[in-house]
């Protein structure tokens, strides 16, 4: 691969930003420090996002406690094939993201990094496509809360209120993730070698992993309830 000696020489300086470049540390130590800072920063943001989605999950928990029977009836109406397929797609994209993140830290693995980023984006887009098909089917089945709602139990609408809300908030997060990864690929295309040791790869991939985790929790909420019996 193209990871020649001069590229490695340049790396630390290339990614070093203010104010980390003025700490009086040697170039590579300053860069390791900046990298640790960026990782810590995104993890604080993830902790913050845990509370954001946590509030959403609390809404589900409280509503399900209050209306358990209706929630089971409503959850039976979601399409488990699409849901399970999407879960598998996202889990696989999470694998690619993790491999891209680790490969970007190693010499000579730029091509692997790039391929894994590409696969991550494609799997993310596939998830969105499946979600779109599923949304269309949901609308055809009158599962949008409102006057013409398909189910007669009144609080089944609460479940579908949550369904539409949670899936669209997740989709917005996933779209941001896709945009972040596309930006990384674009940067690499503009400036080959960019991905190598870039803290931005790890930051974007940690965000991707978090969006994955949210879907993992949403899956049993939206698809698995009320299937037994």
């Amino acid at each position: 691969m193209s990871a020649g000696g001069d590229l490695i020489e340049k790396t630390a300086e290339r990614h070093l930003r203010e104010p980390w470049d003025e700490l009086g540390l040697a170039g590579d130590r300053a860069f390791a420090y900046q990298r640790a800072g960026a990782t810590f920063g995104i993890w604080i943001f993830i902790a913050s996002e845990v509370l954001f989605f946590g509030a959403l999950f609390l809404l589900y928990t409280a509503m399900r406690l209050e209306h358990a029977a209706d929630f089971a009836i409503a959850a039976r109406e979601t399409n488990i094939v699409y849901g399970t397929l999407n879960t598998a797609l996202l889990l696989t994209s999470g694998l690619c993201a993790a491999i891209a993140s680790q490969a970007s830290e190693q010499k000579g693995l730029q091509r692997l990094t790039l391929w894994c980023l590409g696969a991550t984006v494609l799997l993310g887009l596939a998830f969105m496509a499946v979600k779109g098909v599923e949304y269309r089917e949901d609308i055809e089945k009158h599962l949008l809360p409102g006057a013409s709602f398909a189910l007669k139990e009144p609080t089944t609408q609460l479940f579908f209120g949550f369904y539409w809300l949670a899936t669209s908030i997740h989709a917005i997060h996933l779209s941001i993730g896709i945009a972040l990864v596309v930006r990384l690929i674009w940067k690499e295309w503009r400036e080959p070698g960019f991905l190598f040791e870039s803290p931005q790869v790890e930051v974007a991939m940690l965000y991707w992993g978090f969006v994955d985790m949210i879907w993992i929790v949403l899956y049993p909420m939206l698809y698995l309830d009320g299937r037994a019996g």
Partner: peptide, 21 residues
């Protein structure tokens, strides 16, 4: 702050998109 953000999203969803929450 994220909990407030989600709460406000819920208000917007119920008010604008007529979702029951």
């Amino acid at each position: 702050t994220p909990v407030l953000a989600l709460t406000l999203v819920l208000v917007i969803a119920e008010r604008t998109f007529n979702l029951p929450i």
